[in-house]
Design a protein around this nucleic acid. Structure first.
Length: 419
RNA sequence: CGGGCUGUAGUAUACCGGUAGUACAAGCGCUUUGGGAGCGUUUAGACUGGGUUCGAUUCCCAGCAGCCCGACCA
């Protein structure tokens, strides 16, 4: 993409109404636009990152047998009354609105009911199970106080998978697979080294749920981490019994602030019962389906990566989720240099390398460098009269101090290997 | 939902009960080109409503909006 065609611009200063680093940097760099408190639009660069994250999650979900679909945002009263979660006194996060004909709809704040209701239509035999449908979708929660930039919004984009199993054993087997899949997702997103599986309160069907907590100083949650095993305990279940039950030693646990980037938990028959979601087994006996829930907030994950990896100059994206792999800077407006930069851009593009080409004219080198640092694209390529004198392109990684001049051919090899 | 704070150009800010100033951004002209460059010039602003007052952006009240702390949550 040519940066001259990218309508977003960087800002030197962040709006004062954004305190959190993730929102400050993402807004300054032009990745997101704040619509209102807790509601953000994704601008071209931000969407590219979001799509990268989405694809990583999609791959991991498909790997464990997930089947993608899309549930509706509008939800009907009748469905949610079955599980007793329509009433505002029970769920205060609802956004609800009226239909012209007088009916009322709610905007999805979660998906258990939608899935249970749909699958009631299709699940009847043990042969129909297990199944693992999931979706990516915008979720709406009427938070009384949204905060921390894109970390907790009123509208947010998430992945939710629900498992429908025949019995506890089958459920547990899948649950364990999901733990691994989640760890893969966070590793691939560049925060694996900071993300710990954390035991949290489990509800009525299991002792614990599992959260994936990324340790960063601005985290909203408090966890107690055993650094040797990488296991953590959420403050909400931090007590002697839990510590002992998990075989941990209290003195070795370190208190940390962390952000919950994902969670998985067992639902048991909490929803299959009200929706009468049953299957007939081999003996024609009816049994309730055992469910599990597995969520990841994509915007929050993106914000967490920014918080965790940024430096004082700007964002530092891991290659896996960067909006582009290469940020190609053209310095100066000499015709020969322009021609060479165009050539480099076209060569990279032809080789299927995602490149943002800073072809803007009239900007000083300092401005382009500062923008490149702020945007945080992993590889910075510079074409200038200086680099041309050295017969190559200057390459520098975002997290390196100094660059070196390398021939275009060598660069193509380098990029292929880093992929 | 309790508590606190704040609303001035696109952004960040200043002053003031009496003509709203500056920087960045944007437009134009010239110069400049390896770490947010210079000179000149132009455009652009007091959240809304009510009250006090000769006069309100300034003081008061209400509404709306935003931020922070707590509670709650992906």
């Amino acid at each position: 993409m040519r940066q001259s065609k990218l309508f977003t611009k960087t800002k030197k200063e962040a709006p004062t109404d954004e305190i959190s680093k993730n929102a400050e940097l993402l807004i300054r760099a032009g990745f997101i636009h704040k619509e209102m408190a807790g509601v953000y639009s994704y601008l071209p660069l931000g969407l590219r990152v979001l799509n990268k994250i989405e694809n990583i999650i999609r791959e991991e979900m498909n790997m464990v047998g997930g089947i993608e679909m899309r549930t509706a945002v509008f939800q009907s009263k009748e469905v949610w009354e079955k599980s007793n979660r329509w009433d505002d006194d029970i769920v205060d996060a609802w956004f609800k609105t009226k239909l012209k004909n007088g009916g009322e709809v709610g905007l999805s704040f979660t998906n258990e009911e939608a899935y249970s209701n749909i699958l009631k239509q299709y699940v009847s035999s043990y042969k129909d199970l297990p199944i693992y449908p999931y979706d990516f979708k915008n979720i709406f929660r009427n938070e009384v106080r949204s905060k921390s930039g894109i970390m907790r919004g009123r509208e947010f984009y998430w992945k939710a998978l629900y498992s429908f199993s025949r019995n506890e054993e089958e459920h547990n087997e899948f649950y364990e697979k999901m733990k691994v899949a989640y760890q893969n997702i966070f590793k691939r997103s560049g925060i694996g080294h900071l993300t710990y599986m954390t035991f949290a309160s489990g509800g009525s069907f299991s002792k614990y749920s599992h959260e994936f907590q990324t340790v960063i100083s601005v985290g909203e949650d408090t966890i107690y981490l055993d650094e040797d095993s990488g296991i953590a305990i959420n403050k909400e279940v931090y007590n002697d019994e839990t510590i002992k039950g998990l075989g941990l030693i209290k003195e070795k646990l370190v208190e940390k602030r962390a952000v919950e980037v994902g969670n998985i938990f067992s639902l048991g028959t909490r929803f299959s019962e009200p929706f009468d979601l049953k299957y007939k087994d081999e003996k024609s006996q009816e049994n309730l389906v055992i469910m599990g829930s597995y969520g990841i907030g994509l915007g929050r994950l993106m914000g967490t990566v920014v918080e965790a990896l940024a430096d004082d100059k700007g964002i530092i994206w891991p290659e896996s989720i960067a909006p582009f792999k290469v940020h190609l800077l053209l310095l100066g407006d000499d015709e020969d240099v322009k021609k060479e930069a165009d050539h480099v851009y076209e060569t990279l593009t032809k080789n299927n390398i995602e490149v943002l080409f800073d072809d803007r004219v009239g900007l000083s080198p300092g401005e382009k460098f500062a923008d490149a640092d702020l945007l945080g694209i992993p590889y910075r390529f510079v074409v200038s009269s200086r680099s041309m004198k050295d017969n190559g392109v200057e390459v520098k990684k975002r997290n390196e101090e100094k660059g070196k001049v390398v021939s275009l051919e060598e660069l193509l090899v380098l990029l292929k290997h880093s992929a």
